[in-house]
Nucleic acid binder design. Structure first.
Lengths: 192, 192
DNA sequence: AAGTCACTAGACCGGTCGTCATACTTTGCG
DNA sequence: CGCAAAGTATGACGACCGGTCTAGTGACTT
């Protein structure tokens, strides 16, 4: 099929952004289409499954992009401690730059659509799983046994997610900084 | 003013439950009122501020209840390690009992209403702050210096929140268990 | 010129939140 | 006791916005 415009991709981009900050139910189709400069009718051509399909694909997109970014930052750092430090720093910057609107790309949708749509919930779960995979791969590459890397990856992910949630809600980076310090100490001990 | 019925309280109760599992925007007024057995008109008698006021008060209620529960569990335990372990166990039970619907009482609303309503966001932030205060008080009572207790309380909170988020999304207690193990080790080292 | 296909506009119906006039119940007081 | 006043309950109503989809436009092919 020859695509003549980039409408579909633009829709996904804006959808990913809006869903990240507002969640699934708070984001209306009108907002999605006008913000993306696309006509309302086009949505059902590109996404026959409607809003749910759009959200599912947007979530998958966010998950992949963030996963790739995570991998890049990790591989670019000299050691695990600075690697994770840089990841948290970057997330903190996203938060402040967006006036505490842009936290985790998946969390908001994950929570408010979990009860409503199984496909969306799955997409979020897959996203988290892929991030976990990236962390796991990195940690084993650093010499950790698979089992320990698994656990540690989960802890890093959970701590960061919790830190983002608290920081966004309190409009204050302090929780994220505390998490960063703790992860620093934890990884320091792990790779002594 | 003398209150003659319990309608208001019932509304708050059901609202707290629905908002916890579905979030703010996903929960309609119709659902709120029918689930609470009260007609729509009564809502605006008891909560002139409408849905937003109801949500704000429901969030405050959830925050206080959970804070009290947290305090009770902590004070009932023989030492910090088992104390935090019991908290995580309890949360895990809530999750499984509710088929992974009931995670953190605040997180869902915190994320999906943060961008839409400042009063609700504040109520969530206050809730988290109070939980942090409970943890902080407990840790200083166990002999930790105030500054360290502050940081550790944040870490415990963030890790648990992240664990709940991941566990709910993946419909799997594993992340929560990893968090529990990690907090166990961390506290063990702290109170060696 | 006719046909095909990517794409779009706007109408549709159902549900949203919020309001209101009305009805019922309890309280205070003569 | 009885009546007025305040407190509380009710659900029909309206303006509006939600997501959905059909009927249509217009560019490209053959």
């Amino acid at each position: 099929m020859v695509r003549r415009t980039d409408t579909r991709q633009r829709m996904l981009d804006t959808a990913a952004g809006l869903f990240q900050t507002q969640g699934y139910h708070a984001t209306g189709l009108t907002q999605l289409t006008t913000a993306g400069g696309a006509p309302k009718g086009s949505l059902y051509f590109h996404f026959p499954g409607g809003k749910e399909q759009l959200a599912t694909e947007a979530v998958r997109l966010s998950g992949e992009r963030t996963g790739a970014l995570l991998e890049a930052v990790l591989n670019d750092a000299p050691d695990p401690v600075t690697a994770v430090g840089r990841v948290v720093d970057a997330l903190g910057n996203f938060l402040t730059e967006s006036d505490f609107q842009r936290g985790c790309p998946l969390a908001t949708v994950a929570l408010d659509a979990a009860a409503a749509s199984e496909p969306i919930r799955e997409a979020c779960a897959d996203g988290y799983a892929s991030w976990h995979g990236v962390l796991h791969g990195y940690l084993t590459g650093q010499g950790l046994p698979a089992e320990r890397a698994d656990e540690l990856a989960t802890i890093v992910l959970a701590a960061i997610e919790g830190g983002l949630l608290l920081a966004r809600t309190r409009r204050d980076l302090a929780p994220l900084r505390a998490v960063a310090a703790h992860l620093h100490a934890t990884l320091d001990r792990e790779f002594s």
